[in-house]
């Protein structure tokens, strides 16, 4: 399978490029400020470059982690994040639809539930309750964009909301999500085992995205 991984110069991106590279043909991309080596530089604008980036790709792993240099170059980091998670994600998915890509995996965050009482047993059936802190709000905006493409049956989207996640769990979850028949829109909560695990990951475990079950 030919996989496009965005934000591939980020920590998560690098792990996935390495971890998925043996089983898949990986195309790594990042913003010009974060690109280098074999990474294809692309600003995810509504242009030919983004269309060329996704052409021939079977699936996209949208890591959606804007490089610090790109965010700072924008002038204000919060505006850069809003722009990236709305406009750039929209352009990426729009191009993917145009080029016939079937599946997008969007990496979101369990920070969308950070304001919830820790005593609550939050699952994928709970509505996100984002704060207006940009590091949380950006994921709400990104999910909103992806969900609309999925709802319109334009492309299938798997949304992985991650908490603290170790390298092996991250690779396994994305690898399994790529190899499973995608639904129109599916959300999984992912958090590695440990003293601080807060969220129920049994849905991901049941789908084989995760070892183990309920904490």
């Amino acid at each position: 399978m030919k996989i496009l991984i965005t934000s591939s110069a980020s920590e998560v991106g690098r792990i996935l490029v390495e971890g998925l590279g043996e089983a898949h043909q990986v195309v790594a991309t990042d913003f010009p400020g974060g690109a280098g080596g074999d990474v294809v530089a692309c600003s995810l604008d509504a242009d030919d470059a983004t269309e060329a980036l996704v052409a021939g790709v079977d699936a996209i792993v949208h890591v959606a982690d804007l490089p610090v240099t790109a965010a700072e170059a924008f002038g204000r980091v919060d505006n850069a994040q809003v722009d990236f998670h709305s406009r750039c994600t929209y352009n990426l998915l729009k191009a993917a639809v145009g080029e016939g890509v079937e599946h997008v995996i969007y990496l979101s965050s369990l920070a969308l539930f950070a304001s919830c009482d820790p005593a609550w047993d939050v699952t994928e059936r709970w509505a996100p309750q984002p704060s207006t802190d940009i590091d949380t709000l950006k994921h709400a905006i990104g999910e909103f964009t992806c969900r609309e493409f999925a709802r319109e049956r334009q492309i299938k989207v798997t949304c992985l909301r991650t908490g603290e996640l170790n390298r092996d769990d991250l690779i396994r979850a994305v690898f399994k999500a790529l190899s499973s028949p995608p639904s129109e829109w599916e959300v999984y909560h992912l958090e590695s085992d440990g003293d601080g695990r807060r969220f129920d990951i049994s849905k991901a475990a049941g789908a084989g995205l995760f070892n183990g079950g309920r904490p």
Binding site: Y90, K94, V97, L137, I141, F144, E148, F149
Partner: peptide, 17 residues
């Protein structure tokens, strides 16, 4: 659910914010 048209979607995202 504004869909994916440019105008509707960008306005819908603004409303969500």
């Amino acid at each position: 659910h504004p869909g994916v048209g440019l105008y509707a979607h960008s306005k819908g995202a603004g409303q969500e914010i």
